[in-house]
Design a protein around this nucleic acid. Structure first.
Lengths: 241, 241
DNA sequence: CGTCCCCTTGAACTCCATCAAACCTGGTGG
DNA sequence: CCACCAGGTTTGATGGAGTTCAAGGGGACG
């Protein structure tokens, strides 16, 4: 089940961006400058760093949930499966995001690396201790979780009430926003990942990309990069009909 | 916008079920026996009780988010709208559930009473004070929010990857579970509410009910009650194809 | 008793899924 | 170094689940 062939390092030599990096500002994802905020991270003391290859499993739905994880670098997908094999990707995680923070015995979704990834592993027991010792941490976690809930609610609106093209436009804009609003957006996940995130099929996603391309709203570049040519038109598409 | 024609009472004379009533056990919703757990609720001291008629607005997306609410009795719907008028219901709230717990300036969804409803209003400022005074409260709220997040993820799976009939079966089972696993489930919301919750149309919901009825999986009774005739068959439908 | 609203049912359509095949691309081994 | 191969992607043709449009019940309330 969870045979992670990943490297486990004792403790990171450099401190990662401040604890709430991903959720507070639009996230300066993957900042390579070393220890910028040395005093910020209350979790740093109890983390193990794991480096993972792309397409590697991190944990699976149903595994004992004895740890949670924070993404330091790379992209991770969280997903749930139906018995028939249908997959719904719950979210893509990037630097600063956390996962596994459910107070349940077992993980309720699976996690896999999309790209080569570095994560911090935080044991549940140690986190509980830390929560006792440092009550303000609970408020930070509450804030993080609330943000996730807000994102989940937006995704419900998308899944339940948007058309294929609207979903795609929303997705690209969300990626762009997450990366700081750039015109050039990295899209490291496959068409089938995108499809399973948006409740579509790979074919429909592909056709959507083609349509956005021929409509001059985006340009598709090498290396999984997409250029947003008309941010406004995309935004119109994303929020409306 | 937010012209609530509701009664505001100073302070409840009876204490409502313990703080996490709805999320911890399958929820003994609406227990009419008076003050059962007198010492349990840390929020009781800062709440105002509001009694609302059915179909009344509580707050709207975009309103200043200066309070959060806990449902004492009745059913409430939370929803988001797309400009074109399409509606996605984010959730139905019942006794014990909370809403408005987003650390944002403004509400990110609208809330309306489905049935006649009693809610507790908790001002944000007072909650913040209470969180300072009583740090353990943050952990409880974290736990509540995490449960909501889990539910939201399940709903994403439903919206993205289930068929109309599977959605309906899942919905009925969730209602039943929430009510303690009874065969007889109260379904106080309209077909159109259900449709907007499941990402369908009223017509499809209606056809689904008919199909479940003719398949002998449910029976539709008066007063918005549904009897689940074959729990197993429904569960098969709900989790799979 | 009438009216309104919700629910149900029917018929036609449409968007997206499904099935199928060609295309591209990066990695591999000869 | 290049041909080959495997995987993902794109494009095409067809079909179906669910929507849309439309009309007919049925219950609650005045």
């Amino acid at each position: 089940m969870s045979a992670h062939a990943s490297t486990i390092v004792a403790q990171p030599t450099r401190v990662v961006p401040g604890f709430l990096a991903a959720t507070m500002p639009p996230s300066l994802s993957a900042m390579p400058k070393a220890q910028s905020t040395p005093a910020a991270d209350p979790l740093a003391a109890i983390t193990q760093v794991k480096v993972m290859d792309r397409e590697q499993p991190i944990f699976a739905e149903g595994d004992a949930a004895d740890a949670l994880f924070r993404v330091v670098d790379g992209v991770i997908r969280l997903y749930k499966l139906l018995p028939a094999g249908r997959r719904q990707i719950i979210g893509f995680l990037q630097a600063g995001d956390m996962m596994g923070l459910a107070f349940a015995e077992r993980y309720l979704y699976s996690a896999e690396a999309v790209t080569a990834t570095t994560v911090q592993r935080i044991s549940r027991a140690q986190l509980d201790d830390l929560l006792d010792a440092q009550p303000s941490l609970a408020r930070k976690l509450l804030s993080v979780t609330t943000s996730e809930l807000v994102a989940a609610q937006d995704q419900m609106l998308l899944l339940g009430r948007k058309t294929a093209l609207e979903k795609l436009a929303s997705f690209l804009l969300a990626l762009s926003e997450r990366a700081g609003g750039k015109r050039l957006v990295g899209v490291p996940m496959s068409r089938s990942d995108i499809a399973d995130y948006l409740g579509l099929t790979t074919e429909t996603v592909s056709r959507g990309f083609t349509k956005l391309k021929t409509s001059r709203l985006i340009r598709i570049l090498d290396g999984g990069k997409v250029e947003l040519l008309d941010h406004n038109a995309l935004a119109d598409l994303a929020d409306c009909a």
